[in-house]
Amino acid sequence: MTRLSSAPEEPVGGPTGEVAAPAGGAQPERDRLRQQMLDVLRRRLGDAVVGSEIAGGDMWVRVERRAWRRLAEVCRDELHMDYFCFLSGIDWMVNPAMSGEKVWEPEGGGVVMEGDEGDAPAPTGIQTGVGGGDSRFQVFARLYSVTGKIGLTLKVDVDESDPRLDSWVSVYRGADWHERETWEMYGFDFEGHPRLRHIYLPGEFEGHPLRKDFPLLSREVKPWPGLVDVEPMPGEEAGAEDATAGAGAAG
């Protein structure tokens, strides 16, 4: 069980920092093992490792784009990460219309975005997560070692204007479909992928749905009716309340 819990007051974007007490006594040893893994990666990839984090029984490594495939090779060959778990992307742009917070405001019922993908609203900020980041887009993947029972999350920044990345298909065959999915959902171009074709969306689909500036049309037509339920009661602070009541209201 990976366990990560960060204090709420900590700034977003920084390392998520202090870890809750790990369950199980073997956690420090596991963390030492993770540190060794990280050392191997640093030794092999040099300064291409630009961010890392070992916290809460899990570990994150962020590398430069040029080292992305090499990273996979090192993980497979030297860290014995034999199990490919997943690969996907993330868009760190906070889009008020899409992040949800905006539409939850009482008056914000029918939020209509200006323009569509081509005329995206100015991002209100890009705050990247664990492991840091310099760009709006990141690709992250997870590998696991079945023998060592240990896994790690790998991240790489993707340039917004030039979203190209080396493909992992030659390293992990399972990356094929995941890269296709990421390609169509985010528009990242995986170089060296045998056939980047649509996997979920119809062939004539335009846009990249999981980007934060891609409008979710049903939300624009009609605000989410279920949101009424989580409005705070009048004169009530969100906080210590009877749990069951909260859960019941939310459900």
Binding site: L4, P8, D58, P232, A240, D242, G246, A250
Partner: peptide, 15 residues
């Protein structure tokens, strides 16, 4: 005991 309005602190978790 959980808050009535569930807000999850910032962070990333893989489970």
């Amino acid at each position: 005991k959980v808050p009535r309005i569930i807000k999850v602190p910032p962070g990333e978790a893989w489970c």
